[in-house]
Design a protein around this nucleic acid. Structure first.
Length: 878
DNA sequence: TCGAATGAAAG
DNA sequence: CTTTCATTCGA
């Protein structure tokens, strides 16, 4: 019968019912290709190395598809997955906890419990989730303008390609958009300058160059660019304007990025539309700044953008191209549009120089490289590897585009990196390096102190240093060796980060990333240091050391540049500065690394919201069982780009309540139930219904109305016990900081609960769905699990159990007091808020900082790429 | 592949 | 109102 429910769908469809895969999950932040990293991470690293670019097939299965990517894209339509609602977010965040408590409990059971928790949750707490969900949704919508929740009729269903074993894996990748029906989304034809371009995977490498610009531009644009460059990698900046939520911004970015990312994921080429989309999106997203006529303006910025784009494309590789260009252009446009005046002025002077310089530098730089390839871009890559080819091809194309727009010089540069080089990565890097180098060198100069004066004396010196270091690393691949060595140490931490690294395959970046982090905020550094030390030996990452090392080597390289010209620096610096001033906050803050894990609040440091974030740091090593699973999710994406990070951060920021808390609540509730009358506002209970939800509980209205019997937790006692033991750990682990009282981590206060929610909380099944019956049956068969009890409960309502059990719990646990306190804290406390707003706050803070200091840090997840990118930009000159 | 839950959206 | 689908992951 149940089938009946679904029955509606044709058999075939049925299967696809769950075709989630079709839909790529949308991530606000990300678009992520990151997946690749995430998944592969350590393991894959090797692979990555091998084929940094294309690779991505990720799962074998898909690969076969022959272009899986295409397939995915083809499905071009693959719909993005609908955004999670508050409850889902909540579930996602707490499911692991539940599972820990009740290992044997299956997800269904867990879900029930979660539902209970959710019901119990105070509006306040819920609010966070709802807000986040809303934000998420908004971002999503923005990204996918015409998106329809229900795909409606069409379903692409397609073939086997999708087979993807892991739907989820891909998840992050973005679908383009709107479902077919709507089409709105995509409208734009975009320039398809090079549709094929898309091949490119996402190379980390590319990220580097672009990242710089992007970073700068991010703010201005919506950051879409970033996505292109770093989406995965890293620019973590999510912060953009305060106005828009970070997610929203991300969404924009992602929109642009997503395809590329997809490509990566897919591994091969997607065709493209990426570019188109990107542009399109950009158009949409930009909103405010419509399209500025690029052509018209052609201000220096544009040129710069072009260059960068070209470079980036080269460096980055294939995928980036399109995105990069579009992004860059957009950025340029944005800049022009928004601040046209300023930017131009400054830029004007600089731009030209920059270009020239860049070129020159490149020539100079090349030395490191195995060789610069012949300029003849046309000369196709020899095909060192298909991957490369694809990537190159893309590059080339881009180049062309670039060339058209821009002077040949750029092109040459691009070309230089030729395919021939044995390692794609290297090549890319090199190419990217050239540009990057110039930038870096500027940065370095700053760091060194050349600009120091100009810059504020901030403590950032460290940061600078770090930046320098990074630069250095990027500049010389060889140096990497050291970093690599370190890597091992980091290992654990790296794991998460690894993802980022993965791409590069070269270890270089890892350090970089860390370093970057440091730069982000001195404080952060300190924290990290502590953390690292405490957590792991990784500490070696300690900035100073790295810096020193890197510098040593780096300096040599830099010098050249330095010698080449300061003017560039100044120009660039000015440019950056301008960008920064505009609003770019891109303080990446190194979050990237921490990403999920630590999320030590990186730069922003808001008060502890970080803490709230998971305690991944701890988790990592220990691996709770959940981890593995969670990994898929969280980690999945992990380290990718800043986007991801942000998303994660945000997600993490969501408060995670300890089971105890809920239990208590439930208890309270129960009590209430018994008392029923107590609740002032609502009278909830049963009879009620709730049409009148209390003002507070809008959310609850449903519950109230539906209210059935509270569902108790089946094995309360057991749970409790489990909880007790686990919870503390979890809490401590999770929350790292806050848990004065083990139990208490985040408790809701009973009082609050009492007031509004009271009651019924229990999840009632909405209606008895089809499944209900089945469910019951099944469960019976299955085993005695809470589920059964629940079922039983359903069948025969028993209320008594709960209270008793709860009481017991309470006694045992005895956590109450603490919980309350915490609760109080939370309510008033900054922590929560910060956590909640983390993104916004970060953005603001970052902005403040940036403006103030004028630094940008870019942390990319991808080491290599990032490394090049580097991360820090200080614009202080002037 | 189903399902448990909630919620948003679409029909 | 009802139905889809988002997340999760053990059966």
């Amino acid at each position: 019968m149940k089938g009946g429910g679904r029955g509606k769908e044709p058999p075939v469809e049925v299967s696809y019912k769950r075709p989630k895969r079709k839909c790529l999950q949308w991530h606000p932040l990300l678009s992520k290709k990151a997946l690749d990293f995430s998944e592969e991470e350590e393991e894959d690293e090797e692979e990555l190395e091998k084929e940094p670019l294309m690779v991505r097939e990720t799962r074998g299965p898909k690969v076969p598809c022959g272009g899986p990517m295409e397939g995915e894209e083809d499905s071009s339509e693959q719909r993005a997955r609908r955004p999670m609602n508050a409850f889902l977010l909540f579930c996602k965040r707490h499911r692991s906890l539940v599972r820990q408590e009740h290992p044997r409990l299956d997800n269904r059971g867990a879900t029930k419990i979660l539902a209970d928790w959710w019901a119990v949750l105070e509006p306040k707490e819920k609010q966070k989730y709802t807000d986040m969900a809303k934000e998420y949704k908004d971002a999503f919508m923005k990204a996918n303008p015409g998106y329809k929740w229900c795909p409606a009729t069409n379903k692409p269903v397609k073939s086997p390609c999708h087979t993807v074993s892991n739907t989820r894996n891909k998840v992050w990748s973005f679908p383009s958009n709107s479902p077919k029906g709507c089409a709105t989304a995509k409208k734009l034809p975009k320039t398809d300058s090079t549709p094929q371009l898309n091949f490119a995977m996402a190379d980390p490498t590319k990220m580097g160059g672009l990242s710089m610009l992007l970073l700068a531009g991010e703010h201005a644009l919506t950051a879409r660019e970033i996505s292109s460059s770093s989406s995965q990698s890293g620019a973590t900046d999510v912060t953009k304007y305060p106005d828009k939520s970070s997610l929203f911004q991300l969404a924009e970015i992602s929109s642009s990025t997503r395809q590329p990312s997809l490509n990566d994921t897919a591994g091969k080429g997607k065709p493209l539309s990426q570019g188109d989309q990107a542009e399109t999106w950009s158009g949409t997203s930009q909103q405010g700044k419509p399209d500025v006529p690029t052509a018209n303006v052609k201000s220096p910025l544009f040129k710069l953008a072009e260059q960068i784009s070209s470079d980036s494309s080269q460096s980055t590789a294939p995928e980036g191209k399109q995105c990069g260009q579009s992004a860059l252009f957009q950025l340029a446009e944005m800049c022009l549009a928004s601040e046209a005046g300023k930017m131009e002025t400054e830029d004007d002077t600089c731009a030209p120089h920059i270009k020239t310089e860049t070129v020159v530098e490149e020539a100079g730089d090349t030395p490191d490289l195995p060789l610069s390839f012949p300029p003849s871009s046309s000369s196709m890559p020899t095909d060192a590897s298909l991957l490369l080819l694809s990537g190159q091809a893309g590059l080339i194309k881009k180049k062309k585009d670039a060339s058209t727009r821009e002077p040949a010089k750029v092109v040459d540069k691009d070309k230089s990196p030729g395919p021939g080089s044995p390692k794609k990565t290297l090549n890319k890097r090199q190419s990217s390096e050239s540009e990057l180098e110039s930038l870096f060198y500027t940065i370095e100069a700053v760091a060194k102190g050349a600009w120091g004066d100009a810059e504020e004396d901030m403590p950032k010196k460290k940061a600078r240093t770090a930046a320098v270091t990074i630069l250095v690393e990027s500049s010389s691949p060889k140096k990497r060796a050291k970093p690599k060595a370190k890597r091992p140490l980091k290992a654990k931490e790296d794991e998460r980060k690894v993802k980022d690294k993965e791409d590069d395959g070269r270890t270089e970046l890892p350090l970089t990333v860390e370093t970057v982090v440091n730069p982000a905020s001195p404080k952060t550094e300190a924290k990290e240091a502590n953390i690292s030390s405490s957590t792991e030996p990784t500490s070696p990452s300690s900035p100073p050391a790295h810096q020193a090392q890197s510098r040593g080597e780096g300096t040599g390289g830099q010098r050249r540049w330095v010698g080449s010209r300061k003017s560039e620096r100044s120009c660039k610096g000015a440019l950056y500065k301008t960008l920064v001033s505009e609003g770019m906050l891109t303080s990446l803050r190194a979050n990237v690394d921490r990403g999920k894990r630590g999320s030590f609040r990186s730069a922003s440091d808001e008060g502890g919201w970080t803490d709230e974030t998971w305690a991944f740091s701890q988790m990592g090593p220990s691996n709770f069982k959940k981890l593995k699973k969670s990994k898929s999710k969280d980690e999945t994406a992990p380290g990718l780009g800043k986007l991801e990070e942000e998303f994660e951060k945000k997600f993490n920021s969501l408060p995670q309540y300890s089971p105890l808390t809920f239990d208590k609540k439930s208890t309270v509730v129960t009590k209430k139930k018994t008392d029923i009358s107590t609740a002032p506002e609502e009278q909830p209970l049963k009879p009620a219904k709730g049409p009148s939800p209390s003002q507070k509980n809008t959310l609850f209205h449903k519950i109230v109305s539906k209210y059935k019997d509270k569902k108790e937790k089946p094995n309360t006692l057991d749970k409790d016990i489990a909880m007790r033991s686990d919870s503390p750990m979890l809490d401590s682990a999770t929350k790292a900081k806050p848990s004065p009282a083990p139990c208490a981590t985040a408790t809701l206060n009973p009082e609050a609960m009492g007031t509004s929610p009271s009651v019924p909380v229990g999840s009632q099944k909405r209606k008895a769905r089809k499944s209900k019956i089945t469910h019951l049956v099944r469960s019976a068969d299955g085993r005695v699990s809470p589920a059964e009890e629940d079922k039983a409960r359903d069948l025969t309502p028993e209320q008594d159990d709960k209270p008793l059990s709860q009481d017991t719990l309470c006694n045992e646990t005895g956590c109450y007091s603490a919980s309350k306190q915490e609760e109080a804290d939370r309510s008033s406390a900054p922590e929560d808020l910060p956590a909640f707003f983390s993104l916004a706050a970060l953005a603001e803070v970052a902005a403040m900082e940036n403006i103030h200091r004028g630094q940008h840090v870019i942390g990319d997840s991808q080491k290599k790429d990032m490394a090049k990118t580097p991360v820090l930009i200080s614009c202080a000159d002037q």
